[in-house]
Design a protein around this nucleic acid. Structure first.
Length: 409
DNA sequence: CATCCACTGGAAGATATGGCGA
DNA sequence: TCGCCATATCTTCCAGTGGATG
């Protein structure tokens, strides 16, 4: 069979304009926030110590985009003043689970290649000290942007230390401002009150976009990204409505449109229609779930597999005790040590948070209160994602057969 | 109205892994 | 090598929870 790549360009003009890394010339629908943000950044221009700023709002409501945009602008404008020497350090904390790791990462960012330090082993204060040394070496005004800071959870020592470093004499020449960005509204409350005081000097809240706002954003991006006439009337409106209903996230709306376009293109259609968006929606949903499943630990997977197996036998929803039994036999088959029931319960909670399982509370009085778990994703995609679990190919095959027998989908 | 079930969820402590400096 | 240090993952312990039951 002869194969051949052919260029398909009937839908997109510049697909990157719908992508994550694209920086539009103009940020839509965030004028108020930008104004407030600029006001909070004013001390930088004036040469004073910068404010610490805390931004919060759901994913995809423009926090990072506005920040990037304003930092570019700020760095450019500040060149007019000789006495302001501004550096911006930006770090995404998503995979960093503690202040310690954030500090290590910052140090490594500032050090020349080869001088990096490893991510464990030092006492925390040692790492902070190294960080102060690096910052002082840069000097001037330094803005540290910590995106997705909420992932450090309650371990917020760095957020306590950094803003005070100068007052405590750790920094001589550097004026540091911290800009924390969080997707989690509750994060602010779980911070140490002293951290709240300093970090949240200036707080900016980014509300979700509503449907008309999303539609505006979409259409301004679509102008750049998509060929003339390649979007059917109402499609942008539909994407906007879906995203507004779900999260109010521009990211989600743009992803929908981009994927819908790709689907249309692959099918050889010249125009994106609502059906494509619908397909895109369910595919994105499934990707999200599979992503979550890939990151599970061995026991997390076994826990999920236990529920899948129960589902195949049409025995879900199903209480913890029964899942634990199923889990135990699976552990035996795979020659894995079983965990205590409490730990299985933890895994089930995790799976619930990932949206892979759902639970409903049973309050049956004298017979106790407990959760009944069941799969919250299509059976097929669940078992598909499980197919590479260690040493359990046989069992998975069996589960598949049972499922087919019972007509489970 | 007290008691009880069958958990849930929080917290503290144990264990193992990998890295540091001396 | 040894004593520390940070972290992830478990285990152990335990105080709730709230409708049904006697």
């Amino acid at each position: 069979m002869s194969r051949r790549f052919e260029r398909k360009q009937n839908i997109f003009r510049n697909k990157d304009a719908l992508g994550e890394s694209y920086q539009p010339d103009r940020i839509e629908e965030r004028d108020e926030e930008i104004e407030e943000y600029m006001d909070a950044l004013q001390p930088v221009v004036d040469g004073w110590e910068p404010n610490n700023i805390f931004l919060y709002g759901n994913t995809g409501v423009g926090k990072t985009a506005v920040t990037d945009y304003l930092m570019d602008q700020l760095q450019e404008d500040v060149t007019d003043y000789d006495d302001v020497d501004l550096s911006v350090i930006s770090l995404n904390c998503k995979t960093l689970n503690s202040s310690y790791q954030v500090a290590v990462e910052l140090v490594n960012k500032l050090r020349p290649a080869g001088g990096e330090i490893s991510s464990t082993g030092y006492p925390q204060q040692t790492v902070f000290k190294k960080l102060y040394e690096e910052l002082d070496a840069i000097g001037g005004t330094i803005l540290i942007i910590l995106d997705e800071v909420d992932s450090i959870g309650g371990r917020d020592e760095l957020l306590y230390e950094l803003p005070r470093a100068r007052a405590n004499g750790y920094l001589e020449s550097a004026k540091v401002g911290v800009i924390g960005i969080s997707n989690d509204f509750k994060f602010r409350e779980q911070l140490d009150p002293r951290v709240q005081d300093t970090l949240c000097e200036r707080e900016l809240q980014f509300p979700p976009y509503d449907a008309p706002e999303l539609e505006n954003i979409l259409s301004s991006r679509a102008e750049v990204a998509i060929a003339e006439g390649a979007v059917e009337n109402g499609v942008l409106n539909y994407c906007a409505a879906l995203a507004a209903r779900d999260s109010g996230s521009a990211r989600q709306a743009l992803d929908l449109l981009r994927l819908a376009g790709e689907i249309a293109e692959n099918q050889g259609d010249d125009v994106i229609v609502e059906d494509h968006v619908e397909t895109a929606r369910s595919r994105l949903e499934q990707e999200r779930v599979e992503e979550g499943m890939r990151e599970l630990t061995t026991h997390g997977r076994l826990a999920l597999l236990a529920v899948i197996s129960k589902a195949a036998k049409e025995e879900t929803p199903c209480r913890t005790r029964d899942i634990y039994e199923e889990y135990t036999t699976l552990c035996e088959s795979s020659e894995t040590d079983t965990l205590a029931q409490r730990s299985l319960h933890n895994h089930l909670s995790d799976l619930r948070m990932l949206g892979i399982l759902s639970a409903h509370e049973n309050r049956s009085g004298s017979r106790g209160n407990y959760y009944s778990y069941q799969l919250d994703v299509p059976f097929t995609s669940a078992i598909e994602a499980m197919s590479d679990v260690l040493r359990l190919d046989g069992e998975i095959q069996t589960i598949r057969e049972i499922a087919t027998m019972n007509d489970v989908v």
